[in-house]
């Protein structure tokens, strides 16, 4: 019923507008077309001026209202560079924006048709054109220079002490893997993926034996310790979006990608800074990946080395979940006897 009323009101408003529009055409003819044209020209010129004034006020108002809702200070070293580049660009473009928009609307108002004025025949001026080719070129060179400088810093090689964490996207969840004590992520092959082995780790590779698999829980990172994410996807293209760290990288099936950054603020610190008790770093999927794209969410906890160590100590490698008898911390029975059937099952599931 409500919809019906809305449609009815729209239709009515439409009809009235149309009748007025039609009538105004007749009135124009009656009053003399030239005169009516001059009148509308004046009105529209004035409206263009109003649009400029209220538009600029609107830009200011919009900024006042919304600037507090963008994400605040970046929480990574790269984020600082990206934000700096962003604000340099905002400053430069805002100046250009104001100058050109003011010129556009002011000229349109100022030089509205009038019987007293003759248009000025001004087909070209090479000097002027050269000036406004060179100046933008110089400004852009500066922006490109800054941009590429930061870009190479961000996409360059990670520091030696960077820890590696693997993150794998699939419809519609994130899974993580830590390299364990040997700091090496073991080899994997997608055809090995089973319910027991969600990432397709190759168990013959000893580097896999201490790898920690995490799913459903947040990723844990250490504050001020560089981290390199090794990014993969199982089914379609996803994207690891880390808005607070200002980082982003696609997860492409068949083509592993990486990105690195250093988180500079712990989750606890962010809770304090933002005043939000439920603050959490979120991983968003930024590449359209199917019907569940909107809810493909992961979390990251940034903590001190000590807290991280405590958490890590509670984790057991996936290898031991598949081959419980290889786990030195579990009570041993007959090692050789039990391992063989388990291994056969694992290979059998390929």
């Amino acid at each position: 019923m409500q919809t019906f009323f809305i449609v009815a009101i729209l239709a009515l408003g439409f009809l009235i507008t149309f009748q007025i529009a039609k009538a105004s055409e007749y009135v124009a003819v009656l009053r003399g077309e030239e005169k009516a044209k001059k009148q509308t020209n004046k009105v529209n010129a004035f409206l263009l001026l109003l649009f400029l004034i209220f538009g600029l006020i609107g830009v200011y108002y919009c900024n006042e209202r919304l600037k507090g809702r963008i994400l605040g200070d970046p929480a990574s070293d790269h984020g600082v560079l990206i934000d700096r580049m962003l604000y340099i660009t905002i400053a430069v473009t805002f100046v250009v924006f104001v100058i050109t928009q003011v010129a556009l609307f002011w000229f349109s108002y100022k030089y509205q048709q009038s019987d007293d004025r003759k248009a000025y025949y001004y087909p070209h001026n090479n000097k002027l054109e050269l000036i406004w080719t060179v100046i933008p070129a110089i400004v852009l060179t500066v922006l490109v220079g800054f941009g590429i400088f930061y870009w190479f810093k961000i996409t360059g090689k990670p520091p030696r002490n960077a820890m590696q964490v693997e993150i794998v996207g699939s419809q519609f969840k994130w899974e993580f893997r830590y390299p364990g004590k040997d700091s090496i992520l073991g080899k994997k092959y997608y055809k090995k993926i089973t319910g027991d082995n969600p990432l397709g780790q190759i168990w013959e590779d000893p580097a896999n034996h201490d790898d920690i698999y995490v799913s459903g829980d947040p990723m844990h990172l250490i504050v001020n310790r560089p981290v390199q994410l090794v990014i993969g996807a199982k089914d379609v293209i996803h994207d690891v979006g880390l808005a607070h760290f200002r980082m982003k990288m696609d997860a492409v099936p068949g083509t592993p990608t990486t990105m690195w950054f250093t988180p500079t603020k712990t989750t606890a610190q962010m809770i304090k800074e933002t005043g939000k008790s439920d603050f959490v770093y979120e991983i968003s999927c930024d590449q359209m990946c199917g019907s569940g794209h909107t809810r493909m969410r992961g979390e990251i906890i940034v903590e001190s080395q000590e807290e991280f160590d405590v958490w890590m100590a509670q984790q057991t490698p996936k290898y031991f979940a598949v081959f419980p008898d290889k786990n030195p911390n579990k009570p041993k029975t007959d090692t050789t006897g039990a391992a063989t059937p388990a291994a056969t099952t694992a290979t059998g599931q390929q």
Partner: peptide
Amino acid sequence: KVFNWLTTLWRGNIRL
């Protein structure tokens, strides 16, 4: 292009 459009409007006799 933008600057040239602006200059085209400048000192014109614009019919809106």
